[in-house]
Amino acid sequence: MEEKLKEIVERTFCKLESVIDNKELAALKVEILGKNGELTGILRNLKDLPADKRPMAGKLVNDARTRLEEAFDKKFKKLYEEELSKKLDEEKIDITIEGKDRKKGGLHPLTIVKNSVIDFFSSLGFMVVDSPEIETDYYNFKALNTPDNHPARDMQDTFYITSNILLRTQTSAGQIRTMEKIKPPIKMINIGRVFRADDVDATHSPVFHQIEGLVVDNHITMCDLKGILDRFARFFFGENTKTRFRPSYFPFTEPSVEVDASCPYCGGKGCRVCKGTGWIEILGAGMVNRNVLKNCDINPDEYTGFAFGIGLDRITVIRYGINDMRLEFENDLRFLKQFN
């Protein structure tokens, strides 16, 4: 019997080698280990052996069975893996073909830049306010120390609706509305649409956007203004950016300054973007004019403040190197898709 067992095991091992699929494997398993299989037959014949030989023989048969079952399992696994890898191989696709699903859309570059400006200022405690786009002469000019026939009105060609109601020419109008509602300490920015009767060309648009900033508190100084704007310039244009203050004039600030940033494209060496000067004008600013504070019932001897106005469109075209402002309002998808 022992001989027989050995022969079955070896033969089966041999056959297993040449089995090529699950079907053959199953058939072989039935042939050997099935109900009527060879090994099962031997087991069945054990009862004919003398009682004292049975345990020994039983063990031999069971050992053989275990070895065979393990071999079958192993073969099964091997076949499975072969089949799987064949299948996976067959399912192979061309991964260089473009991904295809609805893509996410994107924000307009002006919104993207606006959001980044808001991040900077709101982290410093600036609240973000809104004010009307259609304004009264009082908020847009008079309260900002720009009475009728003031020369500064010449600087801005205003769209009028009535003699007293107009499209705001500057977000500065929001300064007054804020200071009427809130008393110092005030830190606010006001971002929005402004309008000036400029004909459309590559650098002018009758509709554009400004970021107005205002800080009013005790002991606010020009050094504070410089500090905020220096940090903003570095945040927006890069860590190595420098700023330069130049005296200027706005009716609602005194002293007033224009602020230039070192050109982010050439680092100040002079290039086409900065017209060779190494500097680009980014904003106007100054210490809030005493008359403006008085107009809002804030005592100018107790409080001082600074204000600044940044052209959102201007810093956007600088950041992205957009060569024509008209693209902003044309909304060509080939333009809109570039910024997200």
């Binding site: 405690g125 973000v128 504070d224 410089k226």
Partner: peptide, 22 residues
């Protein structure tokens, strides 16, 4: 103006910043 130093509103009171609900 180059002589102005770059302070960061050092004497100002803290204020709450950020966006409105709208």
């Amino acid at each position: 103006y180059d002589y102005l130093s770059s302070d960061l509103i050092k004497d100002a009171h803290p204020t709450k910043g950020g966006l409105t609900i709208r």
